[in-house]
């Protein structure tokens, strides 16, 4: 998080993490598509090869709150392929929250788990205790066959502390829920650490509320 008192500007960094081809970039593309034009930045893709992200994608968005504070949100993706570990670690620096995009297909279990371990290791290497990082999990590709059932996912999710969402990012389904869930988790933590509500009257609820209005109504789904 970056706070510019003079400009009354708060910048928050959120990272979409996950195994290769799990749909991180697709999530950002869907968010970009579903956002209203005002305050929506251009989606920047930094180097791709064969549709694979090499460095990162970046989607900036700006929200002017009622309290006169400008909240700038920067959404990043990381490259999923194993070999780009140092890039992932670089992109992860300064993150205020992570959306972990998992592949729902049963045979991708291992790839999901390897990537999640990689996330924890990279957080630690960046000097962050993974248990303090706001993380939400998205089980993407719900439209594919051979996927883990919703009941099973929810049963597993109830054992953990991360909010878990189901999505079909290619159709924009579940993408906003995940995003708003991530915003809520990240701002809850920022609130507790930096007394944002006391200083700026900013709460995670108000940010989620402001952001929800920024999406096209017809495709909006209520956040959990």
């Amino acid at each position: 998080m970056q706070l510019d008192f003079q400009a009354r500007e708060l910048t928050v960094k959120l990272v979409y993490y996950g195994p290769a081809l799990s749909g991180k970039t697709t999530n950002l593309q869907a968010i970009h598509r579903l956002l209203v034009a005002e305050g929506r930045g251009r989606l920047m893709t930094l180097e791709t090869r064969d549709d694979r992200t090499l460095f990162f994608d970046l989607l900036p968005l700006t929200v002017n709150t009622d309290m006169g504070l400008t909240v700038r949100i920067k959404l990043f993706t990381v490259p999923g392929q194993v070999i780009h570990n140092s890039t992932r670690r670089l992109v992860l620096q300064g993150a205020d929250g992570v959306a972990f995009i998992a592949d729902s297909q049963v045979n991708e279990v291992r790839a999901n788990q390897v990537s999640f371990k990689d996330l924890r290791r990279n957080l630690r290497e960046n000097g962050i205790d993974p248990s303090t990082m706001p993380i939400v999990i998205q089980y993407n590709k719900r439209d594919l066959p051979n996927i883990r059932s919703e009941e099973e996912i929810m049963r597993m999710a109830s054992q953990g502390k991360e909010r878990t969402f189901l999505a079909t990012a290619t159709h924009g389904i579940g993408v906003i829920d995940t995003f708003l869930g991530l915003i809520a988790s990240a701002f809850e933590r920022l609130e507790s650490m930096h007394a944002l509500s006391q200083r700026f009257g900013l709460t995670h609820r108000s940010v989620v509320h402001d952001l929800r209005d920024r999406f096209h109504q017809e495709l909006e789904a209520p956040p959990t």
């Binding site: 920047m44 930094l46 970046l58 780009h84 140092s86 890039t87 670089l90």
Partner: peptide, 28 residues
């Protein structure tokens, strides 16, 4: 102008990422 800025920004980030990634790999 926005287009010029966007392209310039992207080029700047790309070259910074190239450099940082190489350095990070070297350190590793």
């Amino acid at each position: 102008l926005d287009l010029i800025l966007f392209s310039g920004h992207r080029a700047q980030l790309t070259s910074a990422m190239h450099l940082l990634t190489v350095r990070e790999n070297y350190r590793e």
